[in-house]
Amino acid sequence: MSQIGLACIIDDDNMYVNLVKRIVEAKKLCKNLMIFQNGMEALEYFEALLNNLEKKCIPEIIFLDLNMPIMDGWEFLENFTKIENKLGKTITLYIVSSSINPVDIERAKQSNTVKDYLIKPVTIHDLESIFLNPAS
């Protein structure tokens, strides 16, 4: 069982991000964690990667929040889907949101890019099983 090299959290809730970070560190779930405050920051990073593809800079897992300022999760997802294939690496994307709106959940299911929809609060156990077995 190999440890995940790089994971990415796109979320504007600092408290949540800090807590996940602590869990990841404490449990040694992955080597490096990237944090983006909103969809725009993350998208800019991925678009820049296209010009300078470095496999180790591409995360294996993305945790995407939906409600964010400047660019929300849906808009990021729409843009990310367009460039996903050009990154040349399998990326597993989870939506992690506090929205329990069935419209959001259904919409996420329709997307091929989205692996699963997690409703906050996530548990330590959830995170462990995702990190240990991302593709399952």
Binding site: L19, V20, S98, I124
Partner: peptide
Amino acid sequence: SHNLRSHTSNLSLLVQL
């Protein structure tokens, strides 16, 4: 619902930790 949930879920995550 959304705004309260974001805090309660942080709280719950924190308690787990």
